[in-house]
Design a protein around this nucleic acid. Structure first.
Lengths: 161, 161
DNA sequence: CCTTGACCTTCCCACCATGGGAAACCTCAA
DNA sequence: TTGAGGTTTCCCATGGTGGGAAGGTCAAGG
């Protein structure tokens, strides 16, 4: 079967089928003499596996790991469970972080009248000067590397959306 | 003050300060004769505003919008509140989606013994054949566009992490 | 046989926000 | 004057996804 059929059968776009192949998620993709990709029914099974794992928010390398276990008859379910649990932990971390953001913003929005006047607690909170030290008060002013200063607030959050 | 000081004072990396400027988040960045960027105390205030909005998971264009309102004395708080509420809605959508994933995966993991044997409900669920129709059963086999088949499961989720 | 249209190929670009690093230049203190 | 450390611009990478161009293939119908 051609790539289009495989796409429809797996629910993954042809773009992504080629991409997954390029990053090594699918090992054996046969070709016709003309260079067309040829997919077997088994390939589509693997692709559906991939799609379901993506639906759970897994990054491709974790899915690759899982496929390896899936195809390894000698696996132990403990290994699979570990991968799954790892992902659950990350999902929970993201949920916690988003919940924190959401609650903070809801709290600010609740305090806002939302009328025609310019006064707004949301802006005041965001602009608040005394919120975090404007500069390390009287600390080392020379000899300071920038180092960990600008760390992304989203360091631990990668992958899905 | 130089970019390094501004970075330490705002909690945003120098990389990001240059990037934010390049995408128009900061309008007026003065330069010394030598080409060094010069930041005022006010600039650092704006940058802290940006950082707090980022901490709430806002994408830069929303922050840009918010800064516009912040600097507009004639704004109405309703406009600010609308932007905030819009963001709350998106955060909640992401949380819902992640929670769905998390619960599904937890459910699978709970069913897995996690021992030395290869049998694993997690893999079985991911590989499940009768899960979604293998191919539109006997539907139009010719004349089918691929269309909406491969839509990303994360369409509505962009921005943070 | 040739056209047409659906399909396929590769390659590049864009998104979003962030970091890494190179090569060159500036500044200030010792 | 030298050296260290700050700064500049420029390019590249990430992770998944989509868009599109330029060209090759294939099958059906005239």
């Amino acid at each position: 079967m051609n790539i289009g059929q495989a796409a429809r059968g797996s629910g993954i776009s042809t773009k992504m089928l080629r991409y997954y192949e390029s990053v090594g998620l699918l090992t054996t993709v046969r070709r016709t003499e003309a260079g067309y990709r040829v997919y077997s029914q088994d390939d589509v099974g693997t692709l559906r596996f991939v799609r379901r794992a993506r639906d759970l928010g897994m990054p491709l390398d974790r899915i690759k790991h899982l496929i390896g276990l899936w195809q390894d008859e000698g696996r132990s379910s403990a290994d699979v469970k570990r991968v799954a649990t790892e992902h659950v932990v990350e999902l929970r971390a993201r949920i916690t972080e988003l919940t924190r953001m959401c609650e903070a913003l809801e709290h600010m929005a609740d305090a806002c009248h939302g009328d025609h006047r310019p006064e707004c607690p949301i802006l005041e909170e965001l602009a608040d000067e005394g919120h975090c030290a404007p500069t390390p008060p009287e600390a080392a002013r020379r000899k300071h590397r920038q180092g960990a200063a600008g760390k992304s607030p989203f360091g631990a959050l990668q992958g899905v959306a």
